[in-house]
Computed example of a mutant assay.
Amino acid sequence: MIIYKTEEEIELMQISALLVSATIAEIAKILRPGLTTFQLDKIAGEFIADQQATPSFLNFHGYPYNITTSVNDAVVHGFPNDTPLREGDIISVDVGVYKNGFHGDHAYTFILGEVDPAILKLVRVTKESLYEGIKEAVVGKRVGDIANAIQVYNENEGYGVVKELVGHGLGRDMHEDPQVPNYGRKGTGIMLKENMVLAIEPMINLGSRHIYTMEDGWTVKTVDGKASVHFEHDVCIKKNKALVLSDYAPIEKAEKANKELNSSYYELV
C-alpha cells in the first residue's frame, strides 16, 4: 500500500532528510586515510543523538550499527569495522535517521586520494544518473520511467546496474511501497502521484552487475571484485518537477574542502 503524505508530513520528512545530509557532511569533514569505519559509525551515532534523533539502521532487522560503510567492491550494507581506510579507497556512506515520526535515508560515495580515472568516471556517472532518475519523478510518470532513465544512463557507459537491490518508498517506515528499481521499461510500473515520497538510489558496478552477500548476512559485494558506487536522495513527487527533500550541497562543500578527498570528478566531461 502506498502512503501519500500531507504537506505537513512532508515538512517533517524534510527535517529528517536534511539531518541525514548534515550527518554525512560531518563525516565528509573528517574522512581520510587511516580512519576506521568504526570511528565513522561512532561519529555519526553521536551526531544524530545530539540532534535528538535516532539512527534508523540501528537494530533494523538486527543490523548492529548506526550507519553502513561500503568500501570499494562492497555495493551496500557494509559493516563498519576496525580496518583503516587507505589512499585510493572509495566508500559509500549510507545514513538513516528517525525524527518527528519520520525517516530520512540517503547515501553518498566518497573517493580517498588518487584513484584510476575509470573510478572517477564511475562516481560521476552514477551520481549524474541519480539526477536523471529524479527528472522523471513527477506526477503522471511511472516508476519504470525513473528506473529506465537510470539504467540507460549507466549501461550506455558499459556499467553493471544492480538488479537485486532497489530504492523504495519512505515515511513513517523506512521501507514503504513502492519499490523503485534501477532498471526497467518506460511507461511501466506504478503511476507516480503527488506527495508520494521515494528513496531513489542507483547502485552501479564498474564491471559485472552480479552480486553476492557475505557471511555476515548484510554486506553485499560485486562478484568480480570491481568497484561499486551508490548515491541516494529522498524525493517527493510533485507536478512538473520533483521536490528533493535531502541536500547534497553541505556534503559537497565539505568534500571539496577536505584535501584528503578527491572531488576532481566534478571537472570531468
Rank of each mutant, 00 (worst) to 15 (best):
D105I: 00
E155H: 08
V76T: 15
V161T: 13
S263A: 14
S129N: 07
K186M: 14
A107D: 15
S92A: 15
K186N: 12
S228H: 07
D216H: 13
D41G: 01
F38C: 04
L206A: 11
V125T: 14
D216Q: 10
K42S: 09
V223S: 09
Y108V: 01
A149S: 14
I111Y: 12
K121H: 14
V76Y: 03
E136S: 10
V162G: 06
P181D: 08
I111W: 09
E267H: 09
H175A: 03
Y108I: 00
F57C: 00
D234R: 02
P64E: 11
E255V: 05
E9Y: 07
Y63E: 09
L58K: 15
F102L: 10
R32E: 13
V220K: 08
A242K: 12
F102P: 05
E9R: 07
P117F: 11
H210V: 02
R124I: 03
A53G: 06
Y265L: 06
S92K: 00
K253I: 03
G207W: 07
G45L: 10
R124H: 11
V97T: 15
E46M: 07
A53M: 10
H175F: 15
G62D: 09
A22F: 01
P80I: 06
V20Q: 08
K259N: 05
E201T: 02
S228M: 08
S21T: 12
N156M: 13
T68F: 10
N205L: 10
N66Q: 14
Q39N: 03
L40C: 03
G78V: 05
H61W: 13
N205P: 01
G160C: 11
E128P: 00
V125C: 02
I24F: 00
V93H: 00
